[in-house]
Amino acid sequence: MTKANFYIIMMVLGTVLPWLFFAPYFAQTGFDIGQYFQSLFMANGLAAGFSIDVLLCIALFWVWSFWDAREQGIRSWWLVLPACSFVGLSLGLPLYLYLRETQLNKAR
């Protein structure tokens, strides 16, 4: 299995598995962003701690991947922004690694 194929598999899993939980939530509450953030941070301390940890990791990933994309010449870096925003780091990270791997393969 190539790295690119592995990243594709992880993108699929990283999209499907979170949405198994997101879909019922949004079906029940609708797309109320205020309710969404309240659920992330106000449910309990564990949920708030986990949520802030993931959000900080996403912010760090965006900055690092932006810098790395400029160094590597990855023009479609911007795709990680909606990937992380609408699914999460579980999609954004393997997507960026896939883009990076394909760019490195072109350079070889």
Rank of each mutant, 00 (worst) to 15 (best):
F37L: 15
F37G: 02
F50A: 12
V54W: 09
L79K: 12
Y7I: 00
S90P: 05
G73Q: 12
L95P: 03
W77D: 03
V80Q: 06
S76M: 10
W78I: 13
R100P: 00
L93H: 01
W77T: 03
Q28L: 10
A69C: 06
A107Q: 15
A48V: 10
I8K: 11
G45K: 15
W19Y: 04
V87A: 07
W77P: 02
K3E: 10
F50M: 09
V87H: 03
L93R: 01
W64G: 01
L60Y: 09
A48R: 11
G73T: 15
C84H: 02
A4I: 12
F22M: 03
A83T: 04
F31K: 09
W62A: 00
K3Q: 06
P82I: 03
G14M: 04
K106M: 12
D68G: 05
G30M: 13
G73A: 10
L17W: 04
A59D: 10
I52V: 15
E71R: 15
L104V: 12
I9Y: 00
L89T: 05
C84S: 06
N5Q: 15
Q103I: 04
F31W: 15
L79F: 12
D53W: 07
Q28D: 14
L13S: 01
V63N: 00
A59C: 15
V54Q: 04
I74C: 01
W77M: 03
W62N: 02
A23D: 02
